[in-house]
């Protein structure tokens, strides 16, 4: 376990040469300084909170409909 994480660290940390074969995702992330990771993080949080708000909204709508039906 220690060796694996050490190798992972050395691979990404120690090598300054960008000419190693990299997959396109890594190239895109690196050239933009990985700002897309932050964009993705914020998007996920926002969407998650939105979904939660929708579910509460739906619950409140149901209650309001019940009140309306029963009047």
């Amino acid at each position: 376990m220690k060796i694996n994480s050490l190798i992972l660290l050395v691979f990404t940390f120690g090598i300054s040469c960008p000419l190693l074969a990299k997959d396109p995702i890594e190239v895109a992330l690196h050239s933009s300084g990985k700002i897309y990771l932050v964009v993705g993080t914020l998007a996920v949080i926002f969407i998650g909170i939105l979904i939660y708000l929708f579910s509460i909204d739906k619950k409140l709508t149901n209650i309001e409909n019940q009140i309306k039906d029963n009047e």
Binding site: L8, T12, I25, E26, L37, T41, V44, I45, G48, Y52
Partner: peptide, 25 residues
């Protein structure tokens, strides 16, 4: 909800820095 969002955002961050969405290590 926060825990799920924490895991999801962590997975995105990990994919871009550790090279993997998840690891049991």
């Amino acid at each position: 909800l926060y825990g799920i969002l924490g895991c999801a955002t962590g997975a995105i961050w990990a994919r871009g820095t550790w090279g993997t969405w998840w690891t049991f290590q």
